[in-house]
């Protein structure tokens, strides 16, 4: 990562032009060539610094379901339960956190009804009670990092 990569990430966290030659447009504001921009993006994706370059969808508007849920897992069984949970293709993120409720995962499903079904399956498979905390209201969605 050098200063140019940083500039690219800062610029593209804010959005992307929907035009015929969008990379050329972005490259121009960054004072690099289109080819260099594309190569640097390929490289940042290959290195795993960027997880994706594309859309962030509003799940509910697509007719999908989205939620955050938590489990309390005993320390000795933690890795086993993590594997059981991660095996569900609907689980998009999973974090171990420092709390009695120590496993927190995001579930994204093709329909809202699938949320309850998958959570019930997770409960059954892991033997842990699931705390489902779907969003009621969103106050901010930025998730961008000034580098």
């Amino acid at each position: 990562m050098d200063a140019r990569d940083t500039a690219i990430i800062n610029q593209l966290q804010g959005g992307f032009p929907i035009t015929e030659r969008p990379y050329a447009e972005v490259a121009k504001t960054l004072e690099i060539t289109e080819k260099e921009l594309i190569e640097r993006l390929e490289n940042l994706l290959a290195k795993g610094i960027l997880s994706r370059f594309g859309p962030m969808y509003h799940a509910e508007r697509l007719g999908g379901g989205l939620t955050l849920a938590a489990l309390h897992v005993a320390d000795e069984g933690f890795d086993r339960v993590a594997e059981q949970v991660n095996r569900f293709p609907e689980v998009a993120h999973n974090y171990q956190r420092e709390h009695h409720l120590n496993m927190w995962f995001v579930l994204a499903t093709e329909t809202p009804a699938r949320i309850d079904e998958v959570l019930a399956e997770i409960e059954q498979k892991t033997g842990c009670r699931v705390y489902n905390v779907p969003k009621i209201e969103e106050f901010f969605v930025g998730l961008r990092f000034e580098l």
Partner: peptide, 22 residues
Amino acid sequence: IQALLTDGTIKRLGVVVRHHEL
């Protein structure tokens, strides 16, 4: 794509960073 951005189906288009790696 512009229409999907305008009606909010696409919240934004751009890079998604792995914050840990950064």
